[in-house]
Design a protein around this nucleic acid. Structure first.
Length: 488
RNA sequence: CGGGAUGUAGCGCAGCUUGGUUAGCGCGCCUCGUUCGGGACGAGGAGGUCGGCGGUUCGAAUCCGCCCAUCCCGACCA
């Protein structure tokens, strides 16, 4: 196999061209495909399974924190959007508007929801009249449309899937508590499910959700040092309550506006998983989101092949009984091809079962990410056949921890505290920079035009301190350093 | 919308400069046979409005014009 020929297989190395790597990987790993209309995507079964697993993890936690699912309509009267001034202004450029229906021009155009604050606000105003009706805690799983000028599969498509939680509360304190609780849920899911260590914090005013009083974000670092906003939780104050007249009578019979929150995580998170963990060989999936956690590759042909395939199916049944998502790859392809194929698809553990293993009464297990030999191939560990079902589930958990640790180390290596402009510019070119900022939007804009970096958040972690703005030297705002980086 | 590039088989490309039989190559796909511990091999086969429209010409994938689409880099963004 010549070098030239080999490069036709697999994907462009991540280390060579992140953008090409990402695109090729999405297609070759059969995660998704481009839809016929610009900016749309088809999520293929392998990619959709990842989404289902993420949904399951989120949905369970939403229910545990007292939320119920409901569904709100795709079409929103255009006038609704206009009721909240900042909200319209924020979303106007990216709206898809339906002007015709049933062959006739509509009296009032319908907006395809870019998010549902407005319809939900309208409905809440109908449903809420007393403090006894509060809180209302609803989540919706749906699709939304935001017209994108530069689409990228999973990261930025015109239509995407997500969940949007919407709650209404009697007091600011309660609504803030809700906002932070869901913020914590996102951080937890990112860490414990997706194995991505997030930088958490509050958005600066310029990066805030249109119509929010406060926006909290989890920001993950991708393999190219760029940040990916992966989930946001907003305290909306009484902005939408006032725009949609969501009022209730309190215990003292006084009429008050509710305080609302909203929070969302989307299929963008799948892009985050790809970009946070992937490597030159392809996808690296965290076990809790992996459609296939363990693949068993039987080796050999004729009678030997029959024997290893039969044993592989037995092992698969045992692993399945132990709660593992397992697949037997008995395709009529060479072992080498199958190994590479599952590595491209990011399966955490591969079990090899050949005639020699059958003889020896063990299997060989290779980790997708782990120790490698001098040829760069995974070091394979022998596991006694009858210990497989008892051993490997624990290895999946350890593997999750190892991925998380690897991502954390990578992030920390690409994060620095900087105090002068030169260091700042150099740092945002490779990762995250903790720096003082004056808080002025014009100054943010200048930083952006000079470096393409933006303030990602005012981090939850980190000491309270003051200093001179890294760009204009004016006194810092926020009482803390701000995290700046390039972002998706 | 501004800047750059590209449209030829499912994917990746050559051919175009200098117009000329039947438009090629690699991968993938189908059939048969051999093959199974890191991307196997042989033989046979299917698959094309050369992005679209118009022009020049005896003749256009190739030259000219217009249009369309896609990708990359910016402005907007989960």
């Amino acid at each position: 196999m010549s070098a030239a020929k080999k490069s036709d297989l697999g994907v462009t190395p991540l280390s060579e061209d992140v953008s090409a790597w990402y695109n090729e990987l999405v297609f070759k790993a059969e995660l998704a495909d481009r839809g016929p209309a610009k900016g749309t995507m088809v999520v293929r079964p392998y990619g959709y399974r990842i989404w289902e697993l993420l949904q399951g993890e989120l949905d369970r936690r939403f229910k545990e924190t007292g939320h119920e699912n409901a569904y709100f309509p795709l079409f929103i009267p255009e006038s609704f959007l206009k009721r909240e001034a900042e909200h319209v202004e924020g979303f106007a450029p990216e709206l898809a508007v339906v002007t015709h229906g049933g062959g006739k021009e509509l009296d009032e155009p319908l907006v395809v929801r870019p998010t549902s604050e407005t319809v939900i606000g309208e409905m809440y105003s109908r449903w809420i009249s007393s403090y006894r009706d509060l809180p209302v805690k609803i989540n919706a799983w749906n699709n939304v449309v935001r017209w994108e000028l530069r689409p990228r599969i999973f990261l930025r498509t015109t239509e995407f899937l997500w969940q949007e939680g919407h709650t209404a509360h009697a007091t600011e304190a309660e609504a803030m508590e809700e906002t932070l609780t869901m913020f914590g849920v996102y951080d937890e899911v990112a860490r414990d499910v997706a194995a991505i260590p997030m930088v958490t914090g509050e958005k600066t005013p310029s990066e805030r959700f249109a119509g929010a009083v406060r926006t909290y974000t989890i920001e993950g670092m991708m393999r190219d040092g760029k940040a990916l906003q992966s989930g946001t939780s907003h305290y909306l104050g009484q902005n939408f309550a006032k725009a949609f007249d969501i009022t209730f009578q309190d215990e003292a019979n006084a009429l008050q506006h509710v305080h609302t929150t909203s929070w969302g995580m989307s299929t963008r998170m799948i892009g985050g998983v790809i970009l946070a963990h992937g490597d030159d060989a392809g996808l690296v999936l965290p076990p809790r989101l992996a459609p296939i956690q363990i693949v068993i590759v039987p080796i050999g042909r004729d009678e030997q092949g029959e024997a290893t395939r039969a044993r592989a199916r037995e092992l698969a049944a045992e692993l399945e009984a132990a709660g593992v998502r397992v697949h037997v790859d008995d395709r009529d392809a060479s072992p080498g091809f199958r190994f590479n194929d599952w590595e491209l698809k990011g399966v955490p553990l591969r079990v090899e079962l050949g005639p020699r293993d059958l003889e020896a009464g063990h299997v060989l297990v290779a980790h997708r990410v782990g120790e490698v030999d001098d040829k760069g191939r995974p070091v394979k560990q022998a596991v006694a056949m009858d210990a497989v079902a008892a051993t490997l589930p624990g290895w999946l958990d350890a593997y999750h921890d190892a991925l998380l640790e690897r991502a954390r180390a990578f992030r920390d290596e690409h994060t620095a505290t900087v105090d002068d402009w030169e260091a700042f510019a150099a740092q945002v070119a490779v990762g995250f920079a903790h720096a003082f900022h004056c808080g002025d939007e014009a100054c943010e804009d200048e930083i952006k035009s000079r470096t393409t970096a933006t303030p990602r958040c005012i981090p939850t972690e980190g000491p309270e301190e003051e200093g001179a703005c890294v760009h204009c030297a004016r006194p810092s705002a926020y009482g803390k350093r701000v995290v700046f980086s390039r972002a998706y």
